[in-house]
């Protein structure tokens, strides 16, 4: 089964091979859903699992995500032909005052790898911008990142504003100093301490 080869090529971090195999499968008339779910997304789930187990390292996980995105790029023009909608839209950004984006980028890439539509607002994003972007994109989730304890209060303010906005958008938070207890305290819908965990959490929040 050639879709399995796409899965394998993602796990081998081979961007060119993933593109090529995806194109071949499309030409052969293989079901697009199967290419996407059984090939690309399943592979990223496996990558996330292996990363959490300590088998794969951060740069390898990112290379796999890039390979997966290359396959997704090939599929995208054809996805519009079917009624295949993204799994959900996620707004992601680092909160006001915080310029650290490596962790946020990692989570963003993994979420794209899991089939979400990700809108990345970048770093040092103020509350209003998060609220507006959630509205404009009809997002299901806003994901907030902070590396500094000094910017954690900005998370609290943003979560509160998003609630007040009445859009019903869910929030999730993460970053080195952030804890489950802090998430509960500020009324966020969830927290994860690594990127694969954040993907799991996003799936749960969208399904809820």
């Amino acid at each position: 089964m050639a879709v399995k080869d796409i899965f394998q090529a993602v796990l081998e971090f081979d961007e060119a091979k993933v593109s090529e195999l995806t194109r071949k499968e499309l030409d052969a008339g293989t079901n697009i859903q199967s290419i996407l779910n059984d090939g690309l997304i399943n592979a990223m789930d496996e990558v996330g699992k292996q990363f959490s187990e300590g088998v794969l390292f951060v740069p390898e996980m990112l290379m796999a995500a890039q390979a997966m995105k290359a396959g997704l790029g090939v599929l995208k023009p054809h996805l519009a032909d079917t009624d295949n909608k993204p799994k959900g839209t996620i707004i992601i950004g680092t909160v006001k005052g915080d310029l650290h984006d490596i962790g946020k980028n990692l989570v963003g890439m993994m979420m794209e790898g899991a089939g979400f539509n990700v809108v990345d607002l970048g770093v040092d994003v103020d509350t209003e911008k998060f609220v507006q972007a959630a509205k404009d994109n009809d997002a299901q989730i806003v994901a907030l990142s902070a590396l500094l304890t000094t910017t954690m209060p900005a998370m609290e303010a943003t979560v509160a504003s998003l609630k007040e906005s009445g859009s019903g958008v869910k929030t999730m938070i993460g970053g080195a100093p952030v804890t489950e207890a802090f998430a509960t305290k500020i009324g966020s819908d969830g927290y994860s301490d690594d990127a694969p965990g954040a993907v799991e959490l996003a799936r749960k929040l969208v399904a809820a």
């Binding site: 951060v58 740069p59 390898e60 990112l62 290379m63 890039q66």
Partner: peptide, 10 residues
């Protein structure tokens, strides 16, 4: 993080 060298030497 996504430089090929980082991946190669990680």
């Amino acid at each position: 993080l996504t430089q090929p060298k980082t991946f190669k030497l990680c």
